[in-house]
Nucleic acid binder design. Sequence first.
DNA 1: TATGAATGAGAGTTCATTCAT
DNA 2: GATGAATGAACTCTCATTCAT
Lengths: 205, 205, 205, 205
Amino acid sequence: MAPKLRQKRRDGLKRQAQLMDVAMEIFAEKGYHSTSVEDIVNTAGVAKGTFYLHFEGKKDVLDKIIESYFSMLYESLKVLDISVPRPVEEIKETYMNVSRALIADTRMKQFVRLLLSEMMGLDRGLTYRINDFFNRIVQMSTGYMRKAQHENRIISTIDPVMISHGIIGSVKELLYQWAVIDENIDLERAISDLVDVYFRGMILE
Amino acid sequence: MAPKLRQKRRDGLKRQAQLMDVAMEIFAEKGYHSTSVEDIVNTAGVAKGTFYLHFEGKKDVLDKIIESYFSMLYESLKVLDISVPRPVEEIKETYMNVSRALIADTRMKQFVRLLLSEMMGLDRGLTYRINDFFNRIVQMSTGYMRKAQHENRIISTIDPVMISHGIIGSVKELLYQWAVIDENIDLERAISDLVDVYFRGMILE
Amino acid sequence: MAPKLRQKRRDGLKRQAQLMDVAMEIFAEKGYHSTSVEDIVNTAGVAKGTFYLHFEGKKDVLDKIIESYFSMLYESLKVLDISVPRPVEEIKETYMNVSRALIADTRMKQFVRLLLSEMMGLDRGLTYRINDFFNRIVQMSTGYMRKAQHENRIISTIDPVMISHGIIGSVKELLYQWAVIDENIDLERAISDLVDVYFRGMILE
Amino acid sequence: MAPKLRQKRRDGLKRQAQLMDVAMEIFAEKGYHSTSVEDIVNTAGVAKGTFYLHFEGKKDVLDKIIESYFSMLYESLKVLDISVPRPVEEIKETYMNVSRALIADTRMKQFVRLLLSEMMGLDRGLTYRINDFFNRIVQMSTGYMRKAQHENRIISTIDPVMISHGIIGSVKELLYQWAVIDENIDLERAISDLVDVYFRGMILE
DNA sequence: TATGAATGAGAGTTCATTCAT
DNA sequence: GATGAATGAACTCTCATTCAT
């Protein structure tokens, strides 16, 4: 039935991508647990079986969504990863880069909403993956700070790891405010200001 | 089980308090959705019916847990709430106070774990309540900063609301690291250092 | 709803036994795979959940049915198991004993129907359990025959193992005819005659 | 795949024959119900649609397998069917003939495995067809025995029908042991010995 | 208060079958 | 003939909640 519809859909997004988009939309709106596979397929206008043709199960869509978006975000990290000697203030770029990547793609807002208000605690493996991503940033940030401490350019009494977690936490919170509470926030400026305050607070003289 | 231990609690609420403790323990360990009412009653050593004698349902026990812990946390906010004119650096106390309240009670670590890795996104009403608590701190912090900006004591270009959210985010993140990842973190010192950096970064001269 | 019915049922069989009886009836009639859990609970007049209160799943009912009936049948084997020196003709008792146990309990006919026309090949573990039962008889029978061969009382050229399997097969077939095709067969006499023929054919002189 | 190998089969039936072979292989290994059409087409290396081009459904491929193998087996029965007056001992040939037919074709072992451990109880119609085959042998055997009883050459107290079923059962059991448990059994000798014992047990003088 | 067997709506998943290409 | 994405009925299983005792 409705062969025309079927045909039309094939022209646009492929099924799997379409279902991932639809799923993320509903996950972000109702939450992962409150979303049933039926919700997804009804919204997508396909049969239940079609869902299981493309995903191993409900958990698998979420995994594939995360894989897809995280691979984009990891891209935005690579830029700084290879760089070696940089002035301390440029750590800021690490944070700004990720933030810009998030703002650039409109679908990212939904992903951030999902990431920051749903995913933590959903599943042990998932939590590890998310924490891994942020830990990678923490490690980069920590490395830079340690070096700067040795060169006597920032305060030596602070623990770079803790401060890095603090910055990450700040950025997460601003992202949450932007993605969930008020989309009119000038996110880039807010993050820029915030990181500036951090560095002003750390730099010696 | 262990009825003697619980005997000390406010009379009439023994069972309810016991069940709330048990529930929080399991929620914090396995997550709200993965915890069944059966898990709770089995661990508590009571029958299913008994649970529904004290709570309206699974959601209700979580609500009551939150109510109970949030009322304690709101207490720790009141101290500053009534304070009138203070030097800018003392905003720090707002954050330190809440943090100390969390560290003081050992059961708080479980609550923090639950709060920061499970509750967001569980339920609209719940999310509002949690955000309300943090917003209250943000408002207090923002108020102080605005005043300090008028008195030309901190940078005027930054948005106090955003920076306040940033500080809250930092504190949340450190709490998460402490409650979920590594309980050996010297939380109080980390938060103190972090807030110091923030203020060094904001203060003029 | 229907609290009276619920009450009445509790007086008679216990739920688990009732469900096992109902399940065996339907399995024997429609076959295990063609029987849905819904069929069972509808016939038993209980809710789906009740089924899963007593069994781990569809497979588990079958396992419990088998366990229950096999433990009865193993009882009927024990009689001969401890006996040591016996005249060769009395091996017959091994077969007659099991047969009588099957005929005695009216519910056994359904079990035999299930056993001989459904269970083989349902599941590796199940098949092993069934074969184990028959192998036990084969072993007993084989032991007696070997002894009789040494004493030169039965033909020495035949393989006791194969002949024992043969007798088992004969008995199975007669049971199948009785349980599935024609319940009016005089099973005891048929088995008696059959075993007689076997022994007349084996005995020297 | 391996299209060259299949090329030799009767033209026009290549695909169908290939699919039947593959299906029987998997049925015999995993059981009919645990085998999905997908298993079959994956192993055969064709698309799902192709399967339905050659068979009406999953059940149909089993029907066609049975039809194919039973027609071969019925061939092996015809030999004796037309025979007229024979000495009683030669009934043995009826059994030996079928057995030899089974051993001769290597694919028959799979069919026997399927037949004796899977098919009974799969489906009413199927069960009838299988029983019909064995009943035909029983009828032949019974006819011979009745005649022999009249001629006072075998014991008159036994029921030829029951004894015939017994012999069939014995043969089935040995076939099962050979096809499923231990392929090294000298099946022909075992069946020969077994039928000999039967007749020694029945013959007068 | 306390119990726990019973409930049943609802969720996730499978798979034989179809049909436009 | 051949394909394989799509279908959807059917099934197993879960679990928050109720209520007679």
